[in-house]
Amino acid sequence: MALLEVRNLTMKFGSLVACNDVSFDVEKGSVVGLIGPNGAGKTTLFNCVSGFYKPTSGKLFFDGRDVTNLPAYEVARLGAVRTFQVVRPLKEMTVLDNVLVGAFLRGADNETAHSVAEECLSLCRLEDKSGNLAGGLPIGYKKRLEMARALATGPTLLMLDEAMAGLTSTEIKEALEIIKGLRERGITLLVVEHIMEAIMSVADKVVVLDGGEKIAEGTPRDIVEDERVIKAYLGAKFTERLKRTGEVTKNG
Protein backbone atom coordinates (compact mmCIF):
# COMPACT_ATOMS: atom_id res chain seq x y z
CA MET A 1 0.00 0.00 0.00
CA ALA A 2 1.32 3.40 -1.00
CA LEU A 3 1.67 6.20 1.53
CA LEU A 4 -0.46 8.54 -0.54
CA GLU A 5 -3.06 7.31 -2.99
CA VAL A 6 -4.75 9.77 -5.30
CA ARG A 7 -7.83 8.21 -6.90
CA ASN A 8 -9.78 9.77 -9.77
CA LEU A 9 -9.35 13.22 -8.30
CA THR A 10 -11.41 15.91 -10.01
CA MET A 11 -11.57 19.54 -9.00
CA LYS A 12 -13.83 22.02 -10.75
CA PHE A 13 -14.13 25.75 -10.21
CA GLY A 14 -17.44 26.53 -11.86
CA SER A 15 -17.00 25.37 -15.43
CA LEU A 16 -13.20 25.28 -15.21
CA VAL A 17 -11.83 21.80 -14.67
CA ALA A 18 -8.52 22.32 -12.88
CA CYS A 19 -7.88 18.62 -12.24
CA ASN A 20 -9.59 15.91 -14.21
CA ASP A 21 -9.66 12.29 -13.03
CA VAL A 22 -6.07 12.22 -11.78
CA SER A 23 -4.78 9.05 -10.10
CA PHE A 24 -1.32 8.16 -8.88
CA ASP A 25 0.52 6.73 -5.88
CA VAL A 26 3.34 8.04 -3.75
CA GLU A 27 5.29 5.11 -2.33
CA LYS A 28 6.71 5.31 1.16
CA GLY A 29 10.28 6.62 1.20
CA SER A 30 10.25 7.81 -2.40
CA VAL A 31 10.62 11.22 -4.00
CA VAL A 32 7.84 11.92 -6.47
CA GLY A 33 8.02 14.89 -8.81
CA LEU A 34 4.90 16.59 -10.09
CA ILE A 35 5.55 18.57 -13.26
CA GLY A 36 3.64 20.28 -16.02
CA PRO A 37 3.22 23.63 -17.74
CA ASN A 38 1.66 26.62 -15.99
CA GLY A 39 -2.02 26.03 -15.33
CA ALA A 40 -1.65 22.26 -15.49
CA GLY A 41 -3.33 21.89 -12.10
CA LYS A 42 -0.30 21.09 -9.96
CA THR A 43 -1.03 23.55 -7.18
CA THR A 44 -4.74 22.71 -7.25
CA LEU A 45 -3.83 19.08 -6.76
CA PHE A 46 -1.60 20.09 -3.86
CA ASN A 47 -4.38 22.10 -2.29
CA CYS A 48 -6.69 19.09 -2.54
CA VAL A 49 -4.20 16.67 -1.05
CA SER A 50 -3.34 19.01 1.83
CA GLY A 51 -7.00 19.61 2.68
CA PHE A 52 -7.24 23.25 1.58
CA TYR A 53 -9.71 22.39 -1.19
CA LYS A 54 -12.47 19.81 -1.06
CA PRO A 55 -12.24 17.90 -4.34
CA THR A 56 -15.37 17.81 -6.52
CA SER A 57 -15.01 14.06 -6.82
CA GLY A 58 -12.45 11.33 -6.26
CA LYS A 59 -10.70 10.01 -3.19
CA LEU A 60 -7.49 10.62 -1.31
CA PHE A 61 -5.95 8.06 1.00
CA PHE A 62 -3.06 8.86 3.29
CA ASP A 63 -1.46 5.98 5.14
CA GLY A 64 -4.57 3.92 4.39
CA ARG A 65 -6.95 6.50 5.77
CA ASP A 66 -9.53 8.34 3.72
CA VAL A 67 -8.50 11.99 4.06
CA THR A 68 -10.64 13.36 1.21
CA ASN A 69 -12.81 15.55 3.39
CA LEU A 70 -10.53 16.26 6.31
CA PRO A 71 -9.67 19.89 7.11
CA ALA A 72 -6.10 21.03 6.44
CA TYR A 73 -4.97 20.94 10.06
CA GLU A 74 -6.14 17.34 10.45
CA VAL A 75 -4.21 16.28 7.35
CA ALA A 76 -1.13 17.99 8.77
CA ARG A 77 -1.59 16.21 12.09
CA LEU A 78 -1.70 12.87 10.33
CA GLY A 79 1.72 13.70 8.90
CA ALA A 80 1.13 15.14 5.42
CA VAL A 81 2.48 18.69 5.51
CA ARG A 82 2.86 21.16 2.65
CA THR A 83 4.74 24.35 1.86
CA PHE A 84 3.37 27.21 -0.21
CA GLN A 85 4.50 28.23 -3.67
CA VAL A 86 4.01 31.88 -2.77
CA VAL A 87 5.92 31.93 0.51
CA ARG A 88 3.89 32.70 3.59
CA PRO A 89 6.19 33.66 6.42
CA LEU A 90 4.52 34.58 9.73
CA LYS A 91 5.95 38.05 9.20
CA GLU A 92 5.92 39.63 12.63
CA MET A 93 7.43 36.54 14.25
CA THR A 94 11.08 35.58 14.32
CA VAL A 95 12.43 32.75 12.18
CA LEU A 96 12.78 30.60 15.30
CA ASP A 97 9.20 31.36 16.38
CA ASN A 98 7.95 30.43 12.90
CA VAL A 99 9.61 27.05 13.14
CA LEU A 100 8.46 26.61 16.75
CA VAL A 101 4.84 26.85 15.60
CA GLY A 102 5.52 23.78 13.50
CA ALA A 103 7.51 22.06 16.24
CA PHE A 104 4.70 22.38 18.79
CA LEU A 105 2.54 20.01 16.72
CA ARG A 106 4.17 16.96 18.27
CA GLY A 107 3.91 18.14 21.86
CA ALA A 108 3.44 21.17 24.07
CA ASP A 109 6.75 20.72 25.86
CA ASN A 110 8.89 23.82 25.37
CA GLU A 111 12.28 22.14 25.57
CA THR A 112 11.49 19.43 23.04
CA ALA A 113 9.94 21.96 20.69
CA HIS A 114 13.02 24.18 20.92
CA SER A 115 15.41 21.34 20.21
CA VAL A 116 13.31 20.15 17.24
CA ALA A 117 13.11 23.70 15.91
CA GLU A 118 16.84 24.25 16.20
CA GLU A 119 17.57 20.97 14.46
CA CYS A 120 15.29 21.93 11.57
CA LEU A 121 16.84 25.38 11.35
CA SER A 122 20.32 23.94 11.02
CA LEU A 123 19.12 21.31 8.54
CA CYS A 124 17.77 24.11 6.36
CA ARG A 125 20.81 26.29 7.06
CA LEU A 126 18.91 29.04 8.79
CA GLU A 127 20.53 28.91 12.21
CA ASP A 128 22.22 32.30 11.90
CA LYS A 129 18.89 33.93 11.00
CA SER A 130 16.88 32.48 13.88
CA GLY A 131 16.43 35.84 15.65
CA ASN A 132 15.41 37.79 12.53
CA LEU A 133 11.83 38.74 11.79
CA ALA A 134 10.59 36.36 9.10
CA GLY A 135 8.99 39.16 7.07
CA GLY A 136 12.38 40.76 6.41
CA LEU A 137 14.21 37.74 4.99
CA PRO A 138 15.41 37.53 1.38
CA ILE A 139 13.42 35.15 -0.83
CA GLY A 140 15.93 32.29 -0.72
CA TYR A 141 15.75 32.23 3.06
CA LYS A 142 11.97 32.50 3.01
CA LYS A 143 11.79 29.42 0.79
CA ARG A 144 13.99 27.51 3.21
CA LEU A 145 11.92 28.79 6.13
CA GLU A 146 8.83 27.26 4.49
CA MET A 147 10.71 23.98 4.41
CA ALA A 148 12.09 24.21 7.96
CA ARG A 149 8.70 25.06 9.37
CA ALA A 150 6.97 22.16 7.63
CA LEU A 151 9.80 19.86 8.61
CA ALA A 152 9.46 20.80 12.28
CA THR A 153 6.00 19.22 12.38
CA GLY A 154 7.65 15.82 11.95
CA PRO A 155 5.92 14.88 8.68
CA THR A 156 5.95 11.47 7.02
CA LEU A 157 4.98 13.08 3.72
CA LEU A 158 6.42 16.49 2.90
CA MET A 159 4.85 18.30 -0.04
CA LEU A 160 7.03 21.03 -1.49
CA ASP A 161 5.33 23.47 -3.85
CA GLU A 162 8.05 24.95 -6.06
CA ALA A 163 10.56 25.20 -3.28
CA MET A 164 13.28 26.08 -5.79
CA ALA A 165 11.52 28.58 -8.05
CA GLY A 166 13.24 31.95 -8.18
CA LEU A 167 16.43 30.76 -6.53
CA THR A 168 19.98 31.19 -7.85
CA SER A 169 21.80 28.11 -9.08
CA THR A 170 23.86 27.94 -5.88
CA GLU A 171 20.68 28.14 -3.83
CA ILE A 172 19.13 25.39 -5.95
CA LYS A 173 22.11 23.14 -5.27
CA GLU A 174 21.72 23.81 -1.56
CA ALA A 175 18.01 23.07 -1.73
CA LEU A 176 18.72 19.80 -3.53
CA GLU A 177 21.19 18.82 -0.82
CA ILE A 178 18.53 19.52 1.78
CA ILE A 179 15.98 17.41 -0.11
CA LYS A 180 18.42 14.52 -0.38
CA GLY A 181 19.07 14.84 3.33
CA LEU A 182 15.34 14.63 4.03
CA ARG A 183 14.99 11.49 2.00
CA GLU A 184 17.82 9.88 3.93
CA ARG A 185 15.84 10.59 7.08
CA GLY A 186 13.00 8.51 5.66
CA ILE A 187 10.70 11.36 4.74
CA THR A 188 8.58 10.80 1.65
CA LEU A 189 8.49 13.77 -0.69
CA LEU A 190 6.00 15.02 -3.23
CA VAL A 191 7.63 17.87 -5.11
CA VAL A 192 6.06 20.32 -7.55
CA GLU A 193 8.85 21.81 -9.59
CA HIS A 194 9.50 23.69 -12.81
CA ILE A 195 13.25 23.33 -12.79
CA MET A 196 13.66 20.08 -14.69
CA GLU A 197 17.33 19.38 -14.07
CA ALA A 198 16.68 19.72 -10.37
CA ILE A 199 13.68 17.46 -10.21
CA MET A 200 15.11 14.85 -12.58
CA SER A 201 18.17 14.40 -10.42
CA VAL A 202 16.26 13.59 -7.21
CA ALA A 203 12.95 12.05 -8.23
CA ASP A 204 12.26 8.31 -8.24
CA LYS A 205 9.07 8.88 -10.14
CA VAL A 206 7.62 11.78 -12.09
CA VAL A 207 3.95 12.50 -12.68
CA VAL A 208 3.18 14.88 -15.54
CA LEU A 209 0.03 16.98 -15.64
CA ASP A 210 -1.24 18.99 -18.58
CA GLY A 211 -4.54 20.83 -18.75
CA GLY A 212 -5.65 19.17 -15.52
CA GLU A 213 -5.04 15.65 -16.77
CA LYS A 214 -2.30 13.19 -16.06
CA ILE A 215 -0.50 12.59 -19.33
CA ALA A 216 2.39 10.47 -18.11
CA GLU A 217 3.85 8.76 -15.08
CA GLY A 218 7.16 6.96 -14.78
CA THR A 219 10.85 7.16 -13.98
CA PRO A 220 12.63 10.36 -15.01
CA ARG A 221 14.26 8.47 -17.93
CA ASP A 222 10.92 7.30 -19.27
CA ILE A 223 9.45 10.74 -18.86
CA VAL A 224 12.05 12.57 -20.93
CA GLU A 225 11.47 10.13 -23.76
CA ASP A 226 7.70 10.22 -23.61
CA GLU A 227 6.38 11.81 -26.79
CA ARG A 228 3.40 13.46 -25.15
CA VAL A 229 5.50 14.99 -22.42
CA ILE A 230 8.01 16.34 -24.90
CA LYS A 231 5.22 17.85 -26.93
CA ALA A 232 3.29 19.29 -24.02
CA TYR A 233 6.02 20.50 -21.82
CA LEU A 234 9.67 19.67 -22.21
CA GLY A 235 10.29 20.43 -25.88
CA ALA A 236 12.64 18.40 -28.10
CA LYS A 237 15.70 20.59 -27.56
CA PHE A 238 15.46 20.32 -23.84
CA THR A 239 15.22 16.55 -23.96
CA GLU A 240 18.41 16.42 -26.00
CA ARG A 241 20.21 18.63 -23.55
CA LEU A 242 18.98 16.66 -20.58
CA LYS A 243 20.16 13.41 -22.15
CA ARG A 244 23.57 14.86 -22.93
CA THR A 245 24.21 16.15 -19.44
CA GLY A 246 23.36 12.69 -18.20
CA GLU A 247 21.44 13.94 -15.21
CA VAL A 248 18.82 11.33 -15.82
CA THR A 249 21.03 8.30 -15.86
CA LYS A 250 21.79 8.59 -12.18
CA ASN A 251 18.29 7.60 -11.25
CA GLY A 252 17.00 6.14 -14.48
Binding site: V81, L90, E92, G102, F104, N110
Partner: peptide, 25 residues
Protein backbone atom coordinates in the same frame (compact mmCIF):
# COMPACT_ATOMS: atom_id res chain seq x y z
CA UNK B 1 6.02 31.56 26.57
CA UNK B 2 3.91 28.51 25.79
CA UNK B 3 2.42 26.74 22.80
CA UNK B 4 -0.92 28.53 23.01
CA UNK B 5 0.83 31.90 22.68
CA UNK B 6 2.69 30.76 19.58
CA UNK B 7 -0.54 29.47 18.07
CA UNK B 8 -2.32 32.75 18.83
CA UNK B 9 0.30 34.73 16.96
CA UNK B 10 0.46 32.19 14.14
CA UNK B 11 -3.30 32.55 13.57
CA UNK B 12 -2.91 36.33 13.54
CA UNK B 13 -0.03 36.27 11.07
CA UNK B 14 -1.56 33.74 8.69
CA UNK B 15 -4.52 31.54 9.37
CA UNK B 16 -3.92 29.23 6.41
CA UNK B 17 -0.24 28.90 7.20
CA UNK B 18 -1.12 27.97 10.77
CA UNK B 19 -3.58 25.35 9.49
CA UNK B 20 -0.94 23.91 7.18
CA UNK B 21 1.15 23.30 10.31
CA UNK B 22 -1.61 21.41 12.09
CA UNK B 23 -3.11 24.31 14.05
CA UNK B 24 -6.89 24.18 14.43
CA UNK B 25 -7.37 27.91 13.99
Amino acid sequence: KHRFGFYLRAVREGQETAESLGVNS
